[in-house]
């Protein structure tokens, strides 16, 4: 459709809209966004889309090849695994579990991290320092290692690994939030609000937070890709989600045993993890450059 401007009006997009316009410029970021939306859709509509139950074992259909193979059947599009479970259904449920849990973890970590960071940023002196560095020791050790330590203490299981990853994600939120709040409090408009008679809590929610949302989105996407990788890595090591449950990492380690007979059983979950992390990173990267460029005009 041809677009023409009927009125001689200037176009003044809001900050959010400007970010979207900048974001749209990058094809890679847009591709990432579509991919990410696809996974989100898969996550939400998973049970409706999956043709079989992911846990039902069919002894008559062990290790079936995919539909396009001469021996395959249309009943199982991607074939079945060594216990006769439908691979497509397992894949859909796997994406659902891995992505869903990752988003939940990032959300919780963000909530806790931002609260602590805001507290550290708004206070001064030793108190601020203590809050800021409370979880710093966690940053010294790689996320996966912390997860392994926690799992070693509390025992294996999806919930324990979730705790571990959440704990490992919190410090970076604390630090970025605190630095951001510190920077922001120096600015003139915060001083102006303070002279309006605004208290600290009002200042944070009304002067600082509206400008922080973009930073949170960028940090959140970074954390999300880490969370996806960690959840599936722990699953792969049999420390996280336990075998019968459909989780991408667990599926990978199970498929490893029959990799020569049915390569698809490791290729599919691997691809899913790869695409998921890729899409999250593309969106995060696109958002970051969009936010950087949006005031350059």
């Amino acid at each position: 459709m041809a677009r023409f401007n009927l009125y001689q009006e200037e176009f003044h997009p809001s900050p959010l809209k400007r970010t979207w316009i900048e974001f749209r410029q990058s094809h890679a970021a847009l591709f990432g966004l579509w991919l990410f939306l696809f996974f989100i859709l898969l996550m939400v509509l998973g049970p409706l889309l999956a043709p079989y139950d992911p846990l039902t074992q069919d002894i008559n259909a062990l290790l079936l090849p995919p539909a396009w193979d001469a021996n395959g059947g249309i009943n199982h599009l991607f074939g079945t695994d060594s216990l006769g479970r439908d691979l497509l259904s397992r894949l859909i449920y796997g994406c659902r579990v891995t992505l869903g849990i990752s988003i939940l973890l990032v959300f919780v970590a963000m909530l806790v991290g931002v609260a602590m960071g805001a507290l550290a940023g708004m206070t001064k002196g030793v108190r601020s320092s203590i809050i800021n560095h409370l979880l710093d020791s966690i940053m010294v050790i790689p996320t996966l290692l912390i997860a392994i330590i926690i799992v070693a203490i509390l025992g294996t299981g999806l919930v324990n690994s979730m705790w571990a990853i959440t704990l490992a994600l919190i410090p970076q939120f604390v630090h970025t939030t605190r630095d951001f709040v510190r920077d922001e409090l120096q600015k003139d408009y915060v001083m102006a609000s303070r002279l309006d008679g605004a208290g600290k809590i009002y200042l944070f929610f009304n002067a600082v937070l509206p400008n922080m949302i973009e930073m949170l989105v960028v940090q959140g996407t970074m954390a999300l890709s880490v969370a996806i990788l960690d959840i599936s890595a722990l699953g792969f090591l049999n420390l996280g989600a336990q075998p019968p449950s459909p989780e991408l990492g667990t599926m990978l380690s199970e498929g490893l045993k029959v990799a020569y007979i049915s390569p698809l059983s490791i290729a599919l979950p691997g691809c899913a993890i790869f695409l998921m992390v890729l899409s999250v990173n593309l969106v995060g990267d696109g958002l970051r450059s969009a936010l950087r460029n949006r005031f350059k005009h």
Binding site: P15, K187, D188, Y189, M191, A192, S193, D196, G197, A198, Y202, N206, A207, P210, N211, I213
Partner: peptide, 20 residues
């Protein structure tokens, strides 16, 4: 710099009224 970039001018002007 004395105007907050993240909120509308109406909100900025409303703030002193709301608080005082």
């Amino acid at each position: 710099e004395s105007l907050n970039p993240g909120i509308t001018l109406g909100t900025i002007l409303d703030e002193p009224l709301k608080l005082n």
